[in-house]
Amino acid sequence: METTAATRAGTDILPGKVGVWWFLASEVMLFGGLIGSFIVSRLGSSGWSGEAAHLSVPVAAINTLVLLTSSMTMVMAFGAVEKGDPRGLRTYLFLTVLLGLTFLGIKAYEYSSEVAAGFTPVTGLFWSFYYTMTGLHALHVLAGIITNLALFVMARRGLRNQHRVELAGLYWHFVDIVWIFLFPLLYLT
């Protein structure tokens, strides 16, 4: 019966990683609840395709490309940490922040042209969902940019806890995945 381990039970898992994944699990529920509500509302109403046709697919596609690329630079920043390449780390983090800002800039351009065309959150239920979902996502992008910027500043001073790059990356990729679903949900159907 005596099965006493010599060390702590479960030290081979990084606590930060477990914590971030739990946090992401709750985020899945947050966006999942919103997306689920959107899906059933859309299936239960008519005429939303016509509303969606007012959105610009090319602009959104470019924005998708920007976010996908930022995911790659983020994971390459982590790769640079693993290879012990502080210069690469700084470069890739900087690129990720830049691409994140580009995404927000394009999103802002989209919002302004839609509002100029008379489509505001109160135009109809489709637009309410559109602005709420993309707005919540944009806030998450903003939080990611701030995190990555903080990491970039830390990396310039010499990053002590290098796991942070991986953890921030997990969050950033999650935000990317949310957009991967928002893009077809709002623009392509």
Partner: peptide
């Protein structure tokens, strides 16, 4: 687990909203 829960929630919303 959360992905399964989200899918379950969405399907159970069908009778009322779709």
């Amino acid at each position: 687990v959360p992905v399964v829960l989200v899918i379950a929630l969405t399907f159970l919303l069908f009778p009322d909203l779709v």
